[in-house]
Amino acid sequence: MTQTILITGCSTGFGEATARLFASRGWNVIATMRRPEAEAGLANLPNVLVTRLDVQDPASIEAAMAAGLARFGRIDVLVNNAGFGLFGVFEETSREKVLEQFEVNLFGLMDVTRALLPHFRANRSGTIVNISSGAGVFALPMISLYCASKFALEGFSEALSYELSGLGIGVKIVEPGGVTSTAFGQRSGAEAAGAHSIPDYAPFVAASNAVFAGLRASRANATSAEVAEVIFTAATDGTNQLRYVATEDIKPLVAARRETSEAEYLAFMRARVAPKLG
């Protein structure tokens, strides 16, 4: 029987690449996005249904699920990919933007998951793949709110995996790092441009921007297609592995966080990402 996957955030980046990969391997794909009218040709692929799903709109979640089930009869895998990042100093960020960061990256993901769980329970099978980030493992300056949302996603996903294991439902976390072939950086930059600037932070912001520019120049960025391959592995390998590091560039930072002492980790990170002032 052909399996079916529902993916959120398919207009660009990981979501689009993942939809294309699963379709190319014979899966039925429910490719969801906030604005289906802007989709990049996914609807022309065989066995792909493009439909609207805005994780901040519960009615659209239910409608997308209903459309997918009407078309394919069953959903086997959910990929929670929709998300965005706020870039800037915490104090400069409005409470409204903080709430939006969590509504999209965490609460919306929870709503989509909750909506699909009865279907998975009825089938006594299913796999949930939550797209996290290296910023869900280690924290970086200027993205405190994005880190907070992804740290929360990691904790939620791990706890949920214990709750669902006896029901035949698996939970996976995919952790990508720097990827050039997405619109993520563009939206983060646009969000930062709208932030209120506090002069006291100007030296720190300038120094942080220089640190990030150096990191970007020194690392080998993966592509969305390569991350999609890791998502495919997580969804199909049949193991109880929880976390998948999806790009090479973050592996030293993940290792520092998970394989060294707290003091060693903080010394490593401060030397690598803390801006030098004065």
Rank of each mutant, 00 (worst) to 15 (best):
G134D: 11
S157F: 09
T127P: 01
K172G: 03
A139D: 03
L106D: 02
R114F: 02
V171I: 15
L164S: 05
V137Q: 06
N123C: 04
A152T: 05
P176A: 14
A122P: 00
S133Q: 05
G168M: 15
A115T: 06
F138P: 00
N123T: 03
A139R: 10
I169Y: 14
R124G: 02
G185P: 01
C147L: 03
L145S: 01
C147F: 05
T180R: 15
L167P: 00
G185R: 15
F120T: 01
S125H: 13
I131D: 02
E100H: 07
S132N: 13
D111Q: 14
P118T: 12
R124F: 10
S165K: 15
I169D: 10
R124N: 10
A122F: 12
L106F: 12
V171Q: 11
G177K: 11
G134N: 12
R124T: 08
G177Q: 11
F151L: 09
D111N: 12
N130S: 14
F151H: 10
F151Y: 13
T113W: 12
A183W: 07
A152E: 03
A139G: 08
E175N: 13
L153D: 00
F156C: 01
R114D: 01
A148Y: 06
R114G: 01
S132M: 07
S149I: 05
K172V: 08
V174K: 05
L164V: 05
S181C: 04
R124K: 13
S161Y: 12
I131K: 10
G155S: 07
Y146W: 11
F120M: 06
V104Y: 06
V174N: 02
F184G: 01
V129N: 08
S181W: 11
L117N: 04
Q101T: 04
L164I: 07
L106Y: 09
A152F: 08
E163Y: 11
G166M: 12
I131W: 12
V129L: 14
L99H: 02
S133A: 08
G134P: 02
A135F: 13
V137G: 01
F138I: 05
V104W: 07
K172R: 15
S144I: 03
S157R: 09
N105L: 09
S132I: 04
D111R: 15
S132V: 06
G178N: 14
S157H: 08
A139C: 05
F107Y: 12
V179P: 00
V104A: 03
V129K: 13
V112L: 04
L109W: 10
Y146M: 04
S161G: 07
F120A: 03
L116Q: 04
E163N: 08
I143L: 09
E154K: 09
G155A: 11
